[in-house]
């Protein structure tokens, strides 16, 4: 009994129930929904968003925000495409791409910790700058025709399972272990829950903050690789608005924008919930404008449930 009670106290479990309910609804509406092909499709489409959202989870756990993710994914794709098209070796391109993600993270970390700038503003600026650069570098054109070995990450399969899904799952598991089982992970939560107390407990808070923005930058670089490989193309407008979906997934998954609260499993369920809703609405031929409205309403509902739950736990003073 107490086990069941403690389950319901976890926001992850409630979102999971939500996922089941929404899934059940769509499976009644459309016979195709539950087919293994469609389910795999949902997970595949969720994996790019999922990787971005995992990076975002790290950032939000420290009470930060990274608005640049969509633009950084696009810029990563365009940079790689440019290099590939001028014949640079695939392994080298992939490594440079990771360094690119790390560099973005270090830039954010430095601005926030040393220059004392607000995460919201810094990443908003990067969002605009990175998007601008994609246009400059690509001249506004879509770049395509990449080597087979590059596309493997986005379009390849291992024993009928898409490589992208495997990367996503491994990435999620690694991130969750890091957060729940390591000192570094504990320190990320500590910084988000009380940064002054964290510093006085000996945590190098600046390093932790820089780390989470690097995690987000690297996530974008990985997402950029998978996205370009899957489409065999890099578009300057790719991943527009991805920051909103990523933030929504993290919050639906039970994290708090005030920091210190949230898990990767929650985020993954949040991403899947958004993926299921997108997919189900497509199957039901819901017009795109309504899709956007409904997604917004789901986010509102998720945050509402969380806030009601919190206010039951303690009377506000």
């Amino acid at each position: 009994m107490t086990f069941i009670k403690s389950l319901f106290a976890k926001s992850e479990f409630i979102v999971f129930l939500g996922l089941l309910v929404v899934g059940a609804f769509f499976s009644f509406q459309s016979p195709v929904f539950l087919s293994s092909f469609n389910l795999q499709n949902i997970i595949l489409q969720s994996s790019i968003m999922g990787i971005i959202a995992i990076g975002m989870t790290f950032v939000i756990l420290t009470a930060g925000i990274d608005l640049s993710v969509g633009s950084v994914v696009a810029l990563s794709g365009i940079l790689m495409a440019t290099m590939l098209n001028s014949g640079v070796n695939v392994a080298l391109v992939l490594s440079i791409n990771l360094v690119f993600g790390i560099t973005i993270g270090i830039f954010h970390g430095f601005s926030i910790t040393k220059m004392r700038m607000a995460p919201f503003i810094v990443t908003l600026a990067t969002m605009a700058m990175a998007r601008g650069l994609t246009m400059v570098v690509s001249d506004g054109r879509t770049l395509f025709a990449f080597p087979e070995s590059f596309n493997y990450f986005g379009a390849g399969k291992v024993a009928s399972i898409p490589v992208a899904i495997i990367i996503f799952l491994l990435y999620a598991i690694t991130a969750e272990i890091l957060l729940q089982k390591t000192v570094l992970g504990r320190n990320i939560y500590a910084v988000g829950s009380n940064i002054k107390a964290a510093a006085l407990s000996g945590i190098r808070t600046n390093r932790i903050l820089t780390f989470v923005y690097i995690a987000s930058g690297v996530s974008c670089a990985i997402a950029g690789t998978i996205l370009s490989g899957r489409l065999d193309a890099a578009m300057p407008t790719a991943a527009t608005g991805a920051e909103l979906d990523a933030i929504a997934a993290v919050i639906i998954g039970g994290a708090s924008l005030f920091g210190g609260k949230g898990t990767i499993i929650g985020t993954v369920i949040g991403v899947l919930l958004i993926g299921v809703i997108n997919n189900g609405m497509n199957l039901m031929n819901v017009p795109p404008f309504w899709q956007s409205f409904i997604k917004g309403a789901v986010i509102f509902l998720a945050v509402l449930i969380d806030s009601i739950k919190n206010s039951n736990e303690e009377a506000a003073i």
Binding site: S193, N194, K196, A197, G260
Partner: peptide
Amino acid sequence: KSENLFFGN
């Protein structure tokens, strides 16, 4: 409250 404990934990 503001420098020593991690409320919520």
